[in-house]
Amino acid sequence: MNSSQLKKQHASYLLDLQIEKRIVLAWQVFILFAFFTIWELAGRLSWVDPLLFSYPSKVGNLFLSKLVDGSLMIHTSVTLLETIAGFILGTVLGTLFAAGLWWSRKASRIADPYLVVLNSMPKVALGPIIIVALGPGYLSIIAMGASISVIITTLVVYHAFHTVEPNFVKVIRSFGGNKKQTFVEAILPASFPAIISTLKVNVGLSWVGVIVGEFLVSEKGLGYMIIYGFQVFNFTLVLLSLVMIAIFSSIMYLMVEWIERKLIRN
C-alpha cells in the first residue's frame, strides 16, 4: 500500500469515527426531546395526573417566575454551597483519617470494628442528633453532607494506601527515607487515582446528605423547596427542584472529572 492510499484509508477511518460520534449525540438529543415532549403531552392530555406529575411548560413557567422574584437563586446557591462544603469536608477528613490509620498499624487494627459499624449505619439517621447538637442551620446541613461520605472515604482511601506497590516503599526506604517521606513521595501520589474515584462517589453522597438535612431543618434550599412543595401539594415546585439538583450535581461531577484529567497522569 503506498502512502496516498494509506492516507485515504486513514481519512475514511476518521470519518467513520466522526459519524459514529454524531449518531450517538443525535440519539442522546432525541431521547431528551422525546422525554420532554411525551411528558408535556401526557400532562396536558391528562394521560397522567397533571397535579402529581405536572408538565415541562408549567415547570418552565415556575422556573421563570422564581428566577424573577430571586427566590430560586437563593435556594439554589444555599444548597450548592452546603453541598460543596460538605463534599470537601468529607473528602478531606476521610483522607486525613485514612492517613492516620496508615501511619499507625495498631490504630487501624483497633479502629477496624468501629469503622465497620459506622460504615454500615445509615448516616442520615444521625440527622436529628446533628441538628440538635449544631443548631438548625448551615452548620448541621454541612455536617450531614460530610458525615455521609467521610467513613466510606476513610475506608476506600485507607485500602488504597495499603495496597500501594510495596516495592515503591522499598525504594524510598533503601535511600533511608522516613515514614513521612514514604507517605509524601510514594503512598499519597500512588493513591491519587483511588482518591479521585472516591471524589466521584462523594459528589452523589454529599447531595443526599444535604437534601435530607434540608428536609429536616426546613429553612432554605432545594431540599426545603421539595418538602414545601410536598406539603402544599405543589408538585411543579418539587419537580423544579429536582431539575435544578440534576443540573448542578451533573456540573459538579463534570468538574471532578476535569480535576481528574488535570491531576492524573496515566
Binding site: E165, N167, F168, K170, V171, I172, R173, S174, F175, G176, G177, Q181, E185, A186, P189, A190, F192, R265, N266
Partner: peptide
C-alpha cells in the same frame, strides 16, 4: 539503610508520576 549502600531492585520501580529527572533525583531529595 544508609547512603553507602545502593539497592537496585528486580524491576525498575520508577515512580510513574515523576519525570525521569525527578526519579533520578529521588535519593538526593530524600
Amino acid at each position: 539503610p544508609n547512603n553507602q549502600v545502593g539497592y537496585m531492585l528486580q524491576q525498575d520501580y520508577l515512580f510513574p508520576w515523576k519525570t525521569i529527572e525527578e526519579n533520578c533525583m529521588l535519593g538526593l531529595k530524600l
